[in-house]
């Protein structure tokens, strides 16, 4: 098991290394981030040269990559185009994103399991059909459409109707927050509501479909039939024998889906104006900010790798029949 994890990690590091080269070359070839500055006749030439030197723009490509890599190994992700420290910026944005993603993922898992189990137990009945159709419609809705619709047609009308702000449509927190952490908690809770609902609705649907089919599969399994035949109560069969086995695939899928959730978070952050990692990355892409882009991809790729590994390990834990050499 341990050797397996190490091996997987090593492979991932190599993959990650190549991914950074790929991104670096792509970005470096995308254009000069200081072109606008350079074209402005009112900015002294010395200013432009100094900025270029700061970003190593005049160095050869491989040298620039080496500068980045040797810094990255020591946790120094360089500076953004405007001279900000990328590593510390990334951390503050990551915190914002995780606040939304973790809350949403945890809730979505519970919703998915509940919906999936309910649909499986009621297989073929109205409840099943209603849940399944809802899931499919949600799957077919791009996340930005869902976010916009919730904002424009649900949140704002409700706020207007009640003449007070129930749903915050922009930003991750109120600007005037002051006082202790505890007194700020309600405000922390208010802002994520809408983006979290969006992420939950988008994420849960596919998981619920898994959960349902894996439940149905397990309900048919021999040991479950046996348990039923022994006369165990429906409830006991469901929880002791079915759910436990049916949870394995869905848990794994959630872990594996993390990359997609992070992708969805980019859009959610844009729709709801959260200054998270995705929004930051997008700014970086549009301003040709190499270090920002690399930092984002490094962070998300690390998460994806860790979660994939977690999925593998979860397999082993949830299904004792699997052993790792």
């Amino acid at each position: 098991m341990f050797a397996y994890v190490i091996r997987r990690l090593l492979i991932s590091v190599v993959v990650l290394f190549f991914a950074t080269i790929f991104v670096f070359v792509l970005v470096a070839k995308s254009g000069n981030p200081l072109a606008l500055l350079n074209a402005n006749p009112h900015i002294p030439h010395a200013t432009v040269v100094a900025r270029e030197n700061l970003l190593h723009l005049n160095d050869p490509l491989w040298q620039r990559y080496w500068i980045w890599l040797s810094g990255a190994i020591h946790g120094n992700l360089g500076t953004s185009i405007n001279g900000q420290d990328v590593a510390s910026e990334a951390m503050s944005h990551l915190f914002v994103t995780l606040r939304m993603v973790i809350v949403a993922t945890v809730i979505a898992i519970f919703v998915a399991i509940f919906m999936g189990v309910l649909a499986a137990v009621r297989q073929g009945k109205v409840t099943d059909h209603a849940i399944t159709v809802t899931n499919f419609v949600l799957l077919a809705t791009p996340i930005f459409v869902l976010g916009l619709a919730l904002k424009e047609f649900v949140a704002i009308p409700i706020n207007q109707h009640l003449n007070t702000t129930i749903f915050y449509t922009d930003g991750e927190q109120s600007p005037t927050l002051s006082g202790s952490f505890l007194s700020r908690l309600p405000a922390y809770a208010e802002h994520p509501a809408l983006p979290a609902i969006t992420l939950i609705l988008i994420s849960y649907a596919s998981w619920a479909i898994y959960q349902r089919s894996s439940m149905i599969e397990t309900l048919d399994a021999d040991h479950v039939r046996l348990a039923r035949a022994k006369g165990l109560s429906q409830r006991r069969v469901l929880f002791r024998h079915v759910l436990r086995n049916a949870l394995i695939p869905v848990t794994t899928v959630v872990a594996l889906d993390f990359a997609a959730v992070l992708g969805g978070a980019i859009i959610t952050e844009i729709v709801f104006g959260w200054q998270g990692l995705g929004q930051w990355y997008l700014n970086g892409v549009l301003t040709l900010d190499t270090n920002v882009m690399l930092a984002y991809l490094l962070i998300t790729a690390t998460f994806v790798i860790l979660f994939n590994l977690l999925a593998d390990i979860l397999y082993g834990v949830l299904d004792p029949r699997i052993r790792y050499a």
Binding site: N159, T165, T169, D170, G171, T176, I270, G273
Partner: peptide, 20 residues
């Protein structure tokens, strides 16, 4: 005087409406 940073102009009116 509080300045709140918005990433998208389309969020301005809803925020004004919501008294944010």
């Amino acid at each position: 005087i509080v300045f709140q940073f918005f990433s998208d102009d389309s969020q301005l009116v809803p925020a004004l409406q919501n008294k944010e």
